[in-house]
Structure formats: C-alpha cells, structure tokens
Amino acid sequence: MSQPRGDASLIWAVRGLAVASGGIVLLIVAFLALEAIPALREVGLRRFFTDASWHPADGADRGAFNLVPMVAGTLTVATGAVLIATPLGIASALFCRFYAPGALGRAYRRLVELLAGIPSVVYGFWGLVVLTPLIRQWQPPGQSLLAGILILTVMILPTVALLSESSLRSIPAAYLRGATALGLSRWATIRGVALPAARSGIFTAVILATGRAVGETMAVLMVMGNIVQVPGSVFDPVRTLTANIALEMGYAMEVHRSALFVTGLMLMAIVVVLVAANARLGREGRRA
C-alpha cells in the first residue's frame, strides 16, 4: 500500500508513541528486579515459597520469607470481587442503556462516574468505620476477606459498568432496529444482539477491573486485617501482596526492603499470568 508523505510521518509518530507506552512496563519490571536482587541472592527464590511464615525484619538468615499466603490472599480477594462486580456491572450498564428512561439513565450514569472517582482512601475509611464493625457483629473480627471483597466490588463496579456501557452504546443502531423488527423481546434482543456485539468491550472492562482489584492497596490494607495466612473462610483476616508492601515499606531496611521488591515482582508475575489467561480466553471467546 503506498502512502502519501504526510501519512508516513503520522505512522512513524504513532508507532513511536506505541513503543513508548508499551515500554513503561519493561522499565517497571527492570526497576523492581534491580531492587529485588539482594534478597534473591541472600535468601534465594525458593524460600519465598517454602519458609514457615513471613518475618523478614529478622534478616536473611533468621527471618522467614514465605509469600504464598499473600499470593492466595490477593487471588481470592480479587477473584471474589470480580465475580460479584462483573454481573452487577453489566446489569448496571444495561440499566443505563436499555432500561432507564432517558433522564434517569443520564443521572444514574453520572452517579456511577462519581463512584469511579471516590478515592480509595475514602472507601477504605468507610469500610473500616462502617462495614467492618457490621461484619464483626456477625462474625468477629470483622476486618476480613469478606470486607475486602465487598469494598473492592464497590470500587471496581464503576469500571465494569462505565466501559460496558460505552461499548453497548457503540453498537450500530441498525442491529437493534433489526432485532426489534423481528419482534424480539427486550431481553432477547439484549442477549442475542447487544451483549454479543459488545463482547470485546465488556471483556476489556473486566480485564481492567481485575487489574484494579489485584493492584488496589490502601482500601484493602484498611479493611482486611493483614494477617499472613491462607484464608480458611471469608471471615478470616488476610494480607494481600499490595498491603504487604504498603504496610512495611516505610520501615523496612536492607534485606527486608529488598524482600518487599520481590513481593512487587510476584505481583507483576500474577498480573502477567492473569493477562495471558484472559487473552487466551478472549481469543477463544471471539472464535466461538
């Protein structure tokens, strides 16, 4: 394909920008790896999976460095939140697009946008002051996996809802008119036409929401109790990898500090695995 000269420079410009955007992750990983080297050298990667517990402040020899319970914590809380937030978020987008009368739909959308912007500190504070005492009355100690799942659900719902709604909105009107002309009911149109057409956008929404759930720090730290253990029930307090970094970074020295960067690398590994799995599922979904 031959290009006019102006187009060539445009293409090179967008290629350059794309490379820059794509390169940021590499920079971040390189930086984490660099800081993690002392701990990996002195403690060894194995002990991050096999040690009895997590007591990194005692130094490389006497300390304990097991990250597995925190990996479990991160995965359970994120999975729980995404499982709840996805159907709710899609329902919310459908409400906005197809069910609510015009003005109500717009007002509702504004409300969801506002929720998207409430700082995680505020969610965390609300969770700590309102939510965890409620859960405590039911099953102590209140600060728990459940509290984390609920808070994260509220936090990632707007992401799912807004992005799903915007992809529902970009479905060509002709599709919907066609379905209506065939005499399909509202739900049949949504199920048969709207949702399939918006699938890739909804998928994007869920990926972004998962990323947010895995990476959320402040709110999770405030409501989840931060005990290093594999959760036995939703009422158990749990520590996530992010909370581990935020809790200890300010006071960690030497190997302890470096071990927290290993925590960061572990987090990146989880994100990479999730993204790869999502991409695979996505490809299969699109083929089906």
Binding site: S21, I207, V271, V275, N278
Partner: peptide
C-alpha cells in the same frame, strides 16, 4: 507489535499503585 503493546498495556493496568509510587520515586 500490536499484541506486544496490548499485552504490556494490560500488565500496566494491573500494576499496583504502590509499585507505581516506588517506580516513580526511583
């Protein structure tokens, strides 16, 4: 190239804010 950029952006979306903080600081 598109797959690489997209994949790296998906990972970037999952980078925790605290890691961004440490990275930005460095």
């Amino acid at each position: 190239p598109a797959r690489l950029v997209r994949g790296s952006l998906d990972v970037l979306a999952g980078v925790p804010s605290i890691v961004f903080g440490l990275f930005g600081n460095a």
